[in-house]
């Protein structure tokens, strides 16, 4: 990978796209942008960027469609989901579709560049909010006495997620737990993998209970 990650932006609002361009500045090379699903899929496949910045809330669940269509043909292209603020279900759905992380649009320019670099190098990027959503998603399973289930999060992974949800950076998490930053990253990647593989029933149970619980 080159020093400057090649980035593609998918968002249906011009204002947001120009905002993202300004935030990223010269730190990345922007190879293109699109405001609707079909054009996005074609251009992403053609230009093969390192990272696609993708709005969660495209019309008609468009974000997921883009990820699935691209991943089928070029699995090396990575996705970072970006949004103003969304329902937990939508965010979890887009991460399950294959996004390597989720950040909110209020993120600072430097933090966004950092997130893009991380995703470009294959790591997962968890904002505090995403960590909260994921903890919430695995929660029904935590409450019951879980048998040896590969889908469950390990104690260490839970610790890492909790610290991220509390606002710790990866480095601070590493210091707090006395482990290497690389180890934190691999824990987070493992959580991402489990989320993507987690059985649909489990998560739909979660989505359902979210609507019912007061």
């Amino acid at each position: 990978m080159s020093e400057r990650p090649r980035v593609f932006i998918v968002d249906d609002h011009e204002l947001i796209r120009s905002g993202i361009r300004a935030e990223l500045g010269d730190a990345v090379e922007i190879v293109g942008e699109a405001d609707e699903v079909d054009a996005a899929i074609a251009m992403i496949l053609e230009r093969a960027p390192d990272v696609v910045l993708l709005d969660v809330h495209m019309p008609l669940g468009g974000g997921q469609v883009v990820i699935e269509a691209v991943a089928k043909r070029d699995p090396t292209i990575r996705f970072l989901a970006l949004s103003v603020s969304d329902a937990a279900e939508d965010v979890i759905a887009i991460v399950r579709a294959g996004a390597r992380g989720y950040v909110t649009k209020t993120i600072s320019g430097a933090a966004l560049v950092d997130a893009v670099r991380r995703v470009a190098s294959g790591d997962a990027v968890f904002s505090p909010r995403l960590a909260g959503f994921v903890l919430d998603a695995f929660r029904p399973a935590l409450d019951v006495e879980a048998p040896d289930d590969v889908d469950q999060l390990s104690t260490r992974e839970l610790q890492v997620l909790r610290l991220i949800a509390r606002g710790f950076s990866y480095r601070e998490v590493a210091d707090e737990l006395g482990i290497a930053v690389k180890t934190v990253e691999s824990h987070v990647s493992a959580v991402l993998r489990k989320l993507q593989l987690a059985n649909r029933h489990q998560l739909s149970h979660w989505a359902h209970s979210r609507r019912l619980l007061g």
């Binding site: 505090p128 919430d136 619980l213």
Partner: peptide
């Protein structure tokens, strides 16, 4: 203030 709440 950034808020994250898990469970309720």
């Amino acid at each position: 203030v950034d808020v994250v709440v898990v469970g309720d």
